Amino acid sequence: MAMSCMKSFRSFIISKEAFRVVNCRTFSAAGGKAKKGSKGGAGDAPKASILSKEMKSTTVVGANILKDGADPKILPDSEYPDWLWHLLDKKPALSELRRKNIETLPYDELKRFVKLDNRARIKENNVIRAKN
């Protein structure tokens, strides 16, 4: 009786493993890129813009966030605040700020120096603690 139970139990384990092998999911090498009925490379060509050059030069295309709104018009430079033109200016790195005299730095650069120096010190302490 014990032998018949062992045989049935062994066959159950084998069939369960075989079931796992049969039900393994695989993916194709193409990754689903090719579509049925499509010819190679036909869908990769850039589409022509339907907007006129005049509209592109007078409006901020794609800046509308409202469902029923329109794209905002581009205003003359005098209509925008002064700080806007300095957003993309390069700011000095920590190494440059360390070379300068701290007492002569303007407030904005001093504030940036303190922030970057604290960040560098924290990173150094983390590296030292990670090695121990």
Rank of each mutant, 00 (worst) to 15 (best):
A70Q: 15
D77E: 10
A48G: 07
G62M: 07
D68N: 13
D71G: 01
V61S: 09
P81L: 03
E54L: 04
D68A: 13
K47V: 02
A48R: 11
K67W: 13
K53E: 15
Y80V: 01
A48Y: 04
P46F: 05
G62D: 13
K67E: 15
A42F: 09
S49R: 01
G43E: 13
G69P: 03
I50P: 10
K53W: 03
N64K: 10
P76C: 06
I65H: 12
W85A: 14
P46K: 02
L84H: 02
D71K: 01
G69E: 08
A63H: 12
S57E: 15
S52L: 05
L75P: 01
T58M: 06
W85L: 07
K73R: 09
D68P: 05
P72R: 04
G69S: 14
D44C: 06
D77S: 09
A48N: 10
S78L: 03
G62I: 06
M55E: 15
Y80E: 04
I74G: 02
Y80F: 09
A42C: 07
K73Q: 11
M55V: 15
I74N: 04
W83E: 14
M55R: 15
D82Q: 01
D68G: 10
E79T: 02
E54G: 06
D77N: 09
K73L: 11
S57L: 08
L51H: 13
D71M: 05
Y80R: 00
D77A: 15
I50C: 08
L84S: 01
W85K: 10
G43T: 00
T59V: 05
L66M: 12
